[in-house]
Design a protein around this nucleic acid. Structure first.
Lengths: 265, 265
DNA sequence: CGTCGTATTGACGTGCCTCAACCCAGGTGG
DNA sequence: CCACCTGGGTTGAGGCACGTCAATACGACG
């Protein structure tokens, strides 16, 4: 993750979720490679018709026959529901992301539009046909699968080991890095509602609200309406996000020296 | 997961962890396909020398240059350590499993031998060379990646949504199904220590011990020494494991009717 | 401007973690 | 062969972080 802080194309922020980016924002700007993978696989979708999906509508259901979908505009949530109303948001996807790639037969989770979306679909068969025919695509495909795996692993660290403060901080940081590999303090759009975020972070909406309020009272974020943050203090968020091993060296040293006392703001 | 209960090769239990099985026991007996994938990829490793690894020793470290490893004997844990001594066991692997497949450059996690192990390594390059040359291998490889993804997703459901009772139950069930697609009440070897299990389930060892004690007092499992369970009552464990949507129909109905009250033994 | 669904706030309860004492198995040396 | 030692495991008491519940506020629509 260190490369996130290195020099990089300072893409000025485009409109909401219109920037080209790759899989499940968990991967944020995981390097040029990732973006390249997304772009080259994108070419497979140009032939198929764009499809508009209203906010809240399902794109596919768990158990449906597998095909591939690329998100062209909007935000999509991938989720599983287990008995008794428990819901888990496996991943959130943005423009440029594609899914269905890591599945063989049926979908193991449902995909729903968080916002109004534009998507394109291609069949499992034609996808694999094309990929088999091109080395470049095969590499891109592999790269995509690897990113998904990495994202899953990060989530597996977040869920059991981060507390109710660290999780929202991680979330905001990833959201910020996703659209810009070198973000600064600045406004940030949060398209999904609290329930979606909570279900992704393994918290309740109330706990989430409590944390956000506390962050706001320390001027680390300034909420504005339900879907925007003004003046996100990323440096402090990063420190509060619990990824102590992931960042600049001096920071790591500081953290590792006073073990068990994570630095407060 | 329904197919787990259907007719299947009733592989009589071989010796500890010697049965052929595929990736990260999370996938248990995920179907013939899976096992086939593991077996055909295994052929790539026959050329390389078997390597003995003592219990507790690392097989590779997070950040090492990527290569592939197949576990031939023993149990391996894949883990990440984040600051301040927090440890997460991403997955546990058994004989036949292989790893490194979902990585492009460096390892994102460490692998350590839980028990005395025998492993074989091959280079990233030679692996991908072989896979590129054979359609069968490419399919097997893809299948493997998909299984890993599915396992990750399951873990992402377990961690935030299952409680301190359901998690150990899920764990024992998976352990039982891993070696035998149609297990009955019977003895079960648990090679790893409590800390490993706890770190995999996102619990503390104390909480884990409390749960196991409670299960024992209800005769659902009967611990025998530190590494064995006698007379595992799988039917009840399944019911307690919180995967309410995964099993036989009448059971599902029973569960869904009285919402919120999961059936007690 | 009124209505409804979403979000916030705060009081309260509880499930898991923390901490500390104890137990037990396995290894080692007398 | 037994006493001791050591490290992993268990048990139980107590605290706290997060969940639950309920009341209120907000913001997006008509």
């Amino acid at each position: 993750m260190t490369q996130l802080l290195s020099t990089a194309p300072t893409a000025t922020r485009g409109d909401e979720d219109a920037v080209q980016n790759n899989h499940a924002f968990d991967n944020g700007a995981k390097g040029r490679e990732a973006i390249h993978a997304g772009q080259s696989l994108s070419s497979l979708f140009v032939g198929s018709a764009a499809e508009a999906v209203a906010a809240g509508k399902a794109i596919w259901w768990e158990g449906d026959k597998n095909h591939l979908v690329q998100v062209e505009e909007g935000v999509v949530r991938l989720l599983r529901i287990i008995g008794e109303g428990r819901r888990v948001i496996i991943a959130l996807q943005f423009a440029g992301d594609l899914n269905g790639a890591s599945l063989q037969n049926d979908f193991l989770f449902t995909a729903e539009a968080v916002t109004k979306c534009k998507i394109r679909r291609i069949s499992h068969m034609s996808f694999h046909g094309e990929v088999a025919r091109s080395n470049a695509l095969a590499r891109a495909y592999l790269s995509l699968l690897c990113q998904e795996a990495a994202a899953s692993h990060e989530q597996m660290v977040l869920l059991p080991k981060k507390n109710a403060e660290e999780r929202p901080c991680s979330f905001i940081v990833k959201l910020a890095f996703r659209r810009n590999p070198r973000p600064r303090q600045g406004p940030l759009r949060v398209s999904m509602n609290r329930q979606d975020i909570a279900d992704h972070l393994g918290l309740t909406i109330e706990t989430l609200a409590h944390t956000v309020t506390k962050l706001a009272s320390r001027n680390i974020v300034i909420p504005e309406g339900r879907h925007d943050l003004r003046n996100v203090n990323l440096a402090r968020l990063v420190r509060l996000s619990g990824d102590t091993d992931d960042f600049s060296e001096d920071f790591c040293q500081r953290v590792n020296l006073n073990t068990r006392d994570k630095p407060r703001d």
